[in-house]
Design a protein around this nucleic acid. Structure first.
Length: 427
RNA sequence: GCCGGGGUGUGGUAGAGGUAUCCCUUGGGACUGUGGAUCCCAAGACCUGGGUUCAAAUCCCAGCCCCGGCCCCA
């Protein structure tokens, strides 16, 4: 009986892993150069960590279970909450800002489709201890430069949920109601917003102002927001956003302002941003990155700590990552012991010694199937190796090897040292 | 959760009621150290379960899975 993969999960074959390692290395390099340090949190957590503040949509899709001790656990549906939990548990005395990055798999029970899986991978970074415009801009810039190093072009949208939340709070709405409205705004359901707010007795004028606020997009959005009477011109969120945009410009980053971005995670409090790949290559799942400022630490038993961060969907990036096939081709060497009929142990001994020397520099294979010379060459050809190194009776006697370039078919007898040099020069 | 389109060896395919085709692949053998070839042998498939039929890969139903879309997210 054949066992299938669980729905929504994937096996990564060598070629895919190689590609992902290359991508990971590029992103890790950027994060390190910006002074961030890598961390890793557990694959599962107490379910409570996520039920506290993650938002309705996430909870609906969570893999929850009880362990044998009766603990209520969940596979992590996202990584921000675990990272902040780690900060509160282990890092709260570290000098601020704490700057960390991470790669990790997440789990959500959703219908699999293009670029959406039940187990998916995120790369994220957080600045813990600040949600200043400088921190917000740095996080956006970091995300931007990661994409740049991957050679991926995508569109950046920046918004600010603080602006909208303040309007709603001023209207004396309760937190649950506010979250509900934010959720509807995020979905773009304007009528539902009007209906819901009307239903709880909000004034018509305020509702209209809110709708026009979230519909603001582009360069003049800020001035227009100011013109709307519901936002005071000395409004903190507005001033913060203005400063942020100024700094983003200093980073030379192209963006579009969109006050309608509300984000599905309830914990965002200030700036929010999303990055889309809008050329259709990702189908309906074109968001590759999301992030913003939030306050979660207090919720997990720490001091109230402003934080800012983002997360990339690595699987989506992997689908659009432009990779030359040359990048994927490793230069490999196959050591071919020519054992003849009697499995000459001298030849095997010498071949092992030579393979060990080559392994200092190159991925090196050696026959483990007792194959004939032609069968070994055939294998070398099948795995697309670049060189074969023959070790036979004659070579052993002369203390040399025969190096064969498998692309050109040219071969020559030489010392092991020279052989290493030759291969290095052609790699 | 909802809506489309699909499932034949590892992959690609033919078969549209009657012994499942071909290519690639994989393993073995022949071949005295270049045969990365050639020849021979072998392995390996009708998604699962029901139903119709003398007979089902083929027709019907359900499920599972895959691909895509809605919603939401990364």
């Amino acid at each position: 009986m054949r066992i299938e993969r669980a729905r929504g999960t994937r096996d990564f074959l060598p070629a895919e892993m190689l590609k992902r390692r290359i991508m990971e290395a590029k992103m890790r390099d950027i994060a390190e150069k910006w002074g961030y340090e890598e961390i890793r949190t557990p694959t599962f957590e107490l379910a409570e960590l996520f039920t506290l503040k993650s938002g309705e949509e996430i909870l609906k899709n969570m893999y929850e279970f009880k362990d044998k001790g009766g603990r209520h656990l969940a596979l992590r549906p996202e990584l921000t909450a675990p990272v902040i939990r780690m900060y509160v548990n282990e890092l709260k005395m570290a000098p601020k800002p704490v700057k960390v990055y991470y790669f990790g798999n997440c789990f959500r029970y959703e219908e699999p489709q293009r670029a959406r899986y039940r187990e998916f991978w995120q790369f994220g970074a957080e600045i813990i201890g600040s949600d200043s415009p400088e921190a917000q801009a740095e996080i956006i810039a970091l995300a931007f430069y990661c994409l740049k190093s991957l050679g991926i072009k995508a569109e950046l949208y920046v918004g600010h949920v603080g602006l909208i939340r303040e309007v709603l709070q001023a209207a004396n709405m309760e937190e649950a109601e506010i979250n509900k409205v934010m959720n509807l705004i995020d979905k773009g359901e304007r009528e539902a917003v009007v209906e819901f707010m009307g239903g709880i007795g909000t004034e018509r004028e305020l509702i209209d102002d809110l709708i026009s606020l979230v519909d603001l997009k582009g360069k003049d959005a800020l001035n227009e927001a100011r013109a709307l009477k519901i936002i005071a011109s000395n409004n903190d969120a507005l001033k913060e956003l203005e400063m942020l945009l100024k700094i983003i410009d200093y980073y030379d980053i192209v963006y579009t302002l969109n006050l309608g971005i509300a984000r599905g995670l309830d914990y965002y409090t200030g700036m929010v941003f999303e990055i889309y790949k809008a050329d259709g290559k990702l189908g309906a799942q074109n968001q590759v990155c999301g992030g913003g400022s939030y306050r979660l630490a207090a919720l997990f038993g720490g001091a109230d700590t402003p934080s800012t961060g983002f997360a990339f969907g690595i699987d989506r990036l992997a689908e659009i990552f432009p990779l030359e096939t040359d990048d994927l081709k490793r230069k490999e060497v196959v050591v071919v012991p020519i054992k003849e009929k009697n499995r000459n142990p001298d030849v095997i001994k010498e071949a092992i010694k030579i393979a060990s020397e080559l392994r200092e520099f190159f991925p090196t294979h050696m026959d483990v199937m007792s194959r004939s010379l032609s069968a070994q060459l055939s294998y070398a050809n099948a795995i697309n190796a670049s060189f074969a190194v023959f070790v036979g009776k004659k070579e052993v006697k002369e203390g040399k090897v025969t190096l064969r370039n498998l692309d050109t078919g040219v071969q020559e007898k030489m010392s092991v040292e020279e052989c290493v040099e030759r291969i290095r020069n052609q790699v």
